[in-house]
């Protein structure tokens, strides 16, 4: 930033800074507000009388005796068994990420190294598949899954999510592998490896940065999915996101909207932590991969 060409006069700096502060408020405030509000009672979170109640928890104090209450969390996690959904989400995410990356690294490596024309067609088809809204595919799954008794199980959902994410995973890993010099595997092959041995001995040890980044996005896709999980999972196998959606139908009538609020905060927390630790990888994945989930 020493260059004169990139230095800004004060007026522009002030304008830019204030614009940024507004954007940051818009981006972050809803999360902070909901996090704060999730520890109140519903009468404060949705306050007809005075919006400031949500800040100070007037009704919360009146109803529970303290300014903060964990009642929403207790209701969601214990009473509504949100922990079961959290467990299912963990299982689904772990398996989706592992299987996606296993298939994706093999395929992405081959696509990055092949100079034949069909590799290009393969990628183009993957791009078209990437554009399919998952829900259109879901309508194709239901009938065969009912017929063959595959509907409702976690493993079906895992495989479906892996398949739906595969085009994106392939594109991203393909561009990461392109950046690993091909001299590396070629010298391994001259040194006496088969193609697969070269991949195993030489490429696998150096591919982790790209694989971790792609893994983060695979995780996000699995974690955030609603269309597939809500349609393909039976009630007891539900993951967090469809579970939250089902709260909207049932609990709102019972006046327990705070269950949903605390479930939402619970589901957001892991993502928050993830951004904190993997900010660099996410940014590099969004830009270097030239694809988004």
């Amino acid at each position: 930033m020493s260059s004169k060409a990139t230095r800004q006069p004060p007026t522009i700096r002030i304008m830019a800074t204030s614009f940024l502060v507004i954007w940051l408020l818009v981006a972050a405030f809803p999360f902070l507000w909901t996090l704060w509000g999730s520890f109140k009672v519903e009468g404060d979170f949705f306050s007809k009388a005075n919006w400031a109640n949500a800040l100070f928890g007037t009704l919360t104090q009146a109803e529970t005796g303290g300014s903060f209450t964990g009642a929403g969390y207790e209701g969601a996690w214990v009473q509504e068994e949100f922990w079961r959904a959290a467990l299912n989400t963990t299982i689904v995410c772990v398996f989706v990420v592992t299987v996606s990356l296993t298939c994706g690294t093999l395929g992405g490596y081959a696509l990055a190294r092949s100079t034949h024309r069909y590799a290009f067609w393969f990628l183009l088809f993957a791009l078209m598949f990437r554009a399919m809204p998952p829900i259109t595919l879901v309508s194709g799954y239901l009938l065969p899954f009912f017929e063959w008794n595959l509907w409702g199980h976690l493993y079906t959902t895992v495989i479906v999510l892996v398949a739906i994410n595969q085009p994106f995973t392939l594109w991203m890993l393909h561009s990461f592998f392109k950046n690993i010099p091909k001299d590396l595997d070629e010298s391994a092959m001259v040194d006496g490896c088969t193609r697969f041995q070269a991949f195993r001995h030489v490429i696998i040890p150096v591919m982790w940065p790209g694989v971790i980044t792609t893994g983060l996005f695979s995780f996000l896709l699995a974690y955030n999915d609603f269309a597939v999980t809500t349609m393909l999972l039976s009630k007891e196998n539900q993951t967090m996101i469809p579970k939250i959606a089902s709260f909207l139908g049932t609990t709102q009538t019972k006046g327990n909207v705070m269950f949903a609020v605390s479930a939402v905060v619970s589901a957001t927390a892991p993502l928050f932590v993830m951004v904190m630790f993997f900010q660099r990888q996410i940014v590099s994945g969004l830009t270097a991969g030239a694809v988004k989930g």
């Binding site: 954007w23 999360f31 939250i244 909207l248 939402v264």
Partner: peptide, 19 residues
Amino acid sequence: TIFFSLLPMIVTPLVGSLI
């Protein structure tokens, strides 16, 4: 800025829109 800006995008669409 980058940290807070990433949040609306990373958070599950269903959850983000609920908020």
